[in-house]
């Protein structure tokens, strides 16, 4: 959590899109920005890029107000994926409330995926976050390409860990909102346990997700979003 100001009745949360270089983290944010309503989200800020590669980070803020009047601001960041920007990744990861790991589905990227995941584990420890407790969602992006890891393998590897996995094609907008929703859902649970959003602020999970993603917490909701994404 970036900050919680009781006096101003304001809470600022941070979600981070992590992953290897060129796996589509910025594309995820661009897609989210385009798919989700203007209402409730702010402007996408893309910081200095060089040859379309992220050097610092991208930032997409969301806003909502709980029935109690608590203002919640959710800032979604991407990290630079390139190995050389590790210090920036650490800085961005500081005080994160949830992480979406964007993996590249291409078979040629398997090594990069696992190195980046190890890097995530290492950096989470560095900034004092417990990967076992932190809300974490994995997205296998670029499902529209050929020569990609098959679904059975993904299930076999990741199912035992209990970490939610979403298949996506960020460029086409598929799975982007679902990834975000899964992460937001887990994040709500994580924050609610400590700050009693439901009990003290009248903000239950459904309302939280409705306000942030414009859908409801069920499969139909995901389908809706896919539909929107496809239309887009």
């Amino acid at each position: 959590m970036i900050e919680y100001d009781e006096f101003e009745n304001k809470m600022v949360l941070k979600l981070v899109y992590y992953g290897p270089a060129l796996s589509g983290k910025t594309t995820n944010l661009l897609s989210l920005h385009d798919i989700l309503d203007q209402d409730g989200r702010g402007d996408l800020t893309v910081l200095d890029t060089k040859d379309d590669r992220t050097i610092f980070f991208d930032l997409l803020p969301f806003f909502l107000t709980a029935p109690s009047g608590l203002k919640i601001k959710l800032k979604v960041f991407t990290v630079p994926g390139q190995v050389k920007h590790d210090a920036t990744r650490k800085a961005v990861l500081q005080r994160a409330d949830g992480v979406a790991f964007i993996a590249d589905s291409q078979l040629s990227e398997e090594t990069n995926n696992s190195e980046s995941f190890s890097n995530l584990e290492k950096n989470l420890e560095f900034v004092g976050l417990d990967i076992e407790k932190l809300p974490l969602v994995i997205q296998f992006n670029k499902r529209d390409l050929t020569n990609i890891i098959n679904e059975d393998d993904i299930t076999r590897i990741w199912e035992p860990t209990g970490i939610p996995v979403v298949l996506s094609s960020a460029l086409a907008g598929h799975g982007v909102v679902e990834t975000f929703r899964r992460l937001v859902e887990l994040t709500y649970g994580h924050i609610d346990r400590k700050y009693l959003l439901g009990a003290n602020h009248g903000l239950d999970k459904n309302m939280f997700m409705q306000k942030l993603t414009g859908g409801t917490v069920n499969d139909a909701g995901f389908k809706d979003n896919r539909h929107i994404a496809a239309e887009y």
Binding site: L47, F56, F57, L59, A87, T88, K90
Partner: peptide, 21 residues
């Protein structure tokens, strides 16, 4: 504002990274 906001974010992040390094 957009321009200043980006500059400020970049500067502060850069500063953080530099100090951390």
């Amino acid at each position: 504002l957009q321009s200043n906001f980006k500059t400020l974010l970049a500067t502060e992040t850069h500063k953080t990274v530099v100090y951390q390094s």
